[in-house]
Amino acid sequence: MTLNSDNILLVTAGYDRTIRFWQANTACVYRTIMHEDSPTNCLAIHPLKTLLAAGSYQHIKMYDLMSNNPNPVMKLDQLQKNIVTLGFSEDKHFMFSGGEDHCVRIWDMRAAKTKANRQISVGAAVNCVTLHPNQAELLIGDQDGVICRWDMAGDKHEKYIIDSNNPSAIRSISINRDASMMAAVTSNGDCQIWSMTGFDSQTHLIRRTNFIAHKRYGLKCLFSPDMTLLATTSADGTAKIWRTSDFACLYELKHDRLQNWVWDCAFTSDSVFLITVCSDGKARLWSTETGNVTKEYIGHQKPVTCLAFDDRIFR
């Protein structure tokens, strides 16, 4: 394998209305996009690494990753309120978005022109949408603490309420690669673990355990690609790495004494590093083997609230 940084995409954005592209190994910015209309809420990289989707107030902008074009190549608008979550299907057929207007939308991206495909609305503002690894179901967490499952492919387009008894908002949902486990963090820092039935035609979820991961808001949870770790981030200025076998906390990654919020995180494909973004304007690269900071990405002038990372190699 040749050593170059071309395959690594690390993109961060936040309140300073810029989207920055980092050379992940040297921590310098090689491209900056002004995203002027509003702060960016979420970022997602197209599976082919050709497009970057940025969700913000009332619209989603798509930027070309192959050129240096500072303008978006596509703008999806006529949306209400903030778009807070975005994602692509692995077969790059569709993109999903969720927002404060209670709606989860599917964008058909098979043709040259992206078009609206379908939408579902839930009872409260959508906080997180996660695609089941079977690529046909979405798990949606909302502000009222409801988690529901939307079977997009099934004939009946069913949706099921998984849990509606949560006292606080669901902030983030993550599903293990083999669909054996689902994790969700809530606004009061509670982390809930569910068992899943994998790739069966009928998905069932059984509540397994829950534990207090953080004392303040939980913001993001994410399983590592090798499925041994779970990362949670919080408003208490820390991210934590948990072992999935027994949910013991391996490392507490303290960001700052000022209790800056740690908004988002991503694992490298070998699960050796975790990247976090924080309200102090920095992104950090942590070793999951030692729990130490390996690199700091400094450049944003205001809090960084979202990141997108992709280091897969195409063969």
Partner: peptide, 15 residues
């Protein structure tokens, strides 16, 4: 089912 990902990351190699 898909297997757990244990792909070497170019970032790790670089660092």
């Amino acid at each position: 089912p898909i297997l757990p990902l244990k792909q070497p990351s170019p970032l790790t190699a670089l660092i």
